[in-house]
Computed example of a mutant assay.
Amino acid sequence: MSFRLVIFSDLDATLLDHQTYSYQAALPVLKKIKKKGIPVVLCTSKTRAETEAIARKLGLQHPFIVENGGAIFIPENYFPESVYRLAGLKAFKKDDYRVIQFGTSYRRLRLALKMIEKKTGKKLIGFGDLGAEEIAAVTGLGRKEAELARRREYDEPFFLENSPEFELIQAAGQRGKRKIKETGVIHKAQVRETINGQIRGIEGSGERGKLFRRMQEVARSQGLKITAGGRFFHLTGTNDKGRAVRVLKKLYRLNLGKIITIGLGDSENDWPMLRAVDLPVLVARPDGINLKLPEAEAKLLRTSRPGPEGWAEAVNFLLSLQKYASGQGGPAARRIIRR
Rank of each mutant, 00 (worst) to 15 (best):
Q61A: 14
E309G: 02
I259F: 13
E134P: 01
T104V: 11
P39E: 09
A137P: 08
S9C: 01
A284P: 03
R152G: 02
K144A: 11
L30G: 05
E309D: 07
L89N: 11
K35H: 10
A333H: 12
L42S: 02
F212M: 07
L274P: 04
A332N: 13
R338W: 03
Q322G: 09
I180S: 04
S304W: 13
G197P: 02
F8D: 04
A219P: 01
G204C: 07
A244V: 11
I169N: 00
Y324P: 08
F232H: 05
Q170T: 12
L130Y: 01
N239Y: 05
D240H: 11
Y23A: 06
G121K: 13
R246Y: 07
F3L: 15
P157I: 00
G103Y: 06
V99M: 10
V6M: 03
Y154H: 08
I262F: 14
I74K: 08
A149G: 00
T236N: 04
W311H: 04
R338I: 02
L109C: 04
E133A: 14
I33Q: 02
I260Y: 09
R143T: 15
F232K: 05
P280W: 08
E153N: 09
A49V: 12
G131I: 11
H187R: 15
R143G: 07
A284D: 09
A87S: 13
Y324G: 15
I195W: 06
P272Y: 04
T44Q: 05
P286I: 00
V29P: 02
L16I: 00
S320R: 14
A189G: 13
T120M: 08
Y106E: 01
K32M: 04
N269C: 12
M1L: 13
E309F: 11
L256V: 03
A228V: 05
G229E: 02
K177S: 15
T139M: 05
R110A: 11
N239G: 00
R152H: 07
V29Q: 08
V245W: 02
D266Q: 01
A172L: 12
V218E: 08
